[in-house]
Amino acid sequence: MDEMFTKSMARNIFYGGSLFFFLLFLALTFDTMGVVPTRDNHENLTPTVVAGKMLWEKNNCIGCHTLLGEGAYFAPELGNVYVRFGNSTEAIKGFIKSRPKDGIPGRRSMPQFNFTDEELEQIAQFLKYSSGINTAGWPPNKMG
């Protein structure tokens, strides 16, 4: 590189630039935290939903599915599954309950988790809550 551009100038760009943009990021984060409550459907964050999120994590559902587009790409998006299943928590529960224990020959299949009725209600309510988050119009259609 040019002699005019010295190492100390490069160093100052690194420290100054990183600090500036990190502070900008903090400011945007602060603003985001103010806006999120208007979009995150927290009014429906009931104890049942919170228990459902725990159950979601405890069974590593994200290891196959995406939720709001994040996760693994092996199984369908679930952020809008409540809508895709005709706004029915019963349909979600029915699907989870009916998974065959030994899978489907040659096909991908969701494991049988042997959830209790209470747990089924929790996970279904969690997915219903997820579908109420304002995601700026994503996904493009209900297929997810």
């Binding site: 590189m1 551009f5 010295t6 190492k7 490069a10 160093r11 760009i13 690194f14 630039g17 990183s18 943009f21 990190f22 900008l24 990021f25 945007l28 603003d31 985001t32 806006v35 999120v36 979009r39 995150d40 459907n41 709001l68 587009g69 994040e70 988050i133 304002n134 995601t135 700026a136 994503w138 996904p139």
Partner: peptide
């Protein structure tokens, strides 16, 4: 000198670049 300028560009673009994960998850 190269190292400084490369990592400067990494953080200048990459920190706010986090925003590309905040499009569709309920964030503004």
């Amino acid at each position: 000198k190269w190292l400084y300028i490369i990592i400067a560009m990494s953080l200048i673009t990459g920190i706010i670049g986090t925003g590309h994960h905040y499009y569709w998850i309920g964030t503004p």
